[in-house]
Design a protein around this nucleic acid. Structure first.
Lengths: 158, 158
DNA sequence: TTTATTCTTGACAGTAACAGTAGAGATTCT
DNA sequence: AGAATCTCTACTGTTACTGTCAAGAATAAA
């Protein structure tokens, strides 16, 4: 019952982008360095986040990723959903899936009492994650005095 | 982020015991038949539940398992905790573990903003599961008109 | 136009956890 | 004594997770 690293890394990386955001797109190498995540692996995760519409990208020099929306409009739930594929404690319950595939049916189906518990638990957890935005995390980071890294690409112009 | 089958089977089996409880201990073979769980696998799960103090057992003919407490004193959380080992969405947070082993430390530790989210999510989920007892499930089963199986070992005396 | 930079895509692989099977042994009742 | 039942330990196949890698496409700058 653990969240995958994709979800955890995904949330950390999205927070990192929001927190250290400058005028230029954020690059994999900077994010992976600050968050200590394998850059090649982070690429994969960002592809998922991009497919989910949470990130926009731009190739070439000075390219990178930018948040598709402002930090207060992106919730932790969205990030997890994009990285994890779904937010369900079990497979046998009907719920929104990333690629719209049908859920495997349970042998007991509607006769299963426990099904209701798992579905409700999933919902409660989802609601909690939906109540937290990237901006909330940034505010919290600032309270804690977390250092903001100045974009090194700006250095040359100062 | 899925519950293991141990947890799901465990809850189903514990409910089954509470629902079909007679005067005699419930036997693996009956529970596994009703719940369609491999008997050998269920043995393993019941060992965990017994170690956690949720079940008592008795060997020999007419032996089997009985709930260590009444159904209204056993929560779903306890069953999951016994079967799953712990109820934590990630490994890097401090929390009660089944065997008291120390949690792996996170490189960011107290500087990690997301840690707080995972811990809080785990807590919320745990609270929900703690609010449901086996008796609640039995009541619900009765509302749904779920058939109670008469203990076949009684048949001979009727 | 060339070149360097960066994202894009798809394939590959080691590891660990999960889910289940199996056998021999201990206990208890009849 | 013998049968029924739990107990303990070990084994195994499968799957998902957690990455790594290589080649390619787009873009900006020189």
């Amino acid at each position: 019952m653990k969240l995958s690293t994709k979800s955890r890394y995904g949330v950390r990386a999205m927070f990192d982008m929001a927190y250290h955001a400058g005028n230029l797109p954020a690059q994999i190498k900077d994010i992976s360095r600050r968050q200590n995540i394998s850059p090649r692996y982070l690429e994969q995760i960002f592809q998922d986040l991009k497919k989910a519409g949470l990130l926009k990208s731009r190739r070439g020099p000075q390219g990178g990723y930018t948040l598709a929306r402002t930090a207060d409009k992106i919730t932790v739930k969205e990030v997890i959903l994009a990285a994890e594929g779904e937010l369900m404690l079990v497979n046998c319950i009907k719920g929104l899936r990333k690629d719209g595939e049908a859920p495997p049916t349970c042998e007991f189906d509607n006769q299963c009492l426990t099904q209701h518990i798992w579905a409700e638990g999933s919902r409660i957890l989802g609601d909690y994650f939906a109540s937290i935005t990237l901006k909330d995390l940034c505010d919290r980071g600032q309270e804690l005095g977390l250092e903001k890294e100045l974009d090194h690409r700006f250095m040359y112009f100062i």
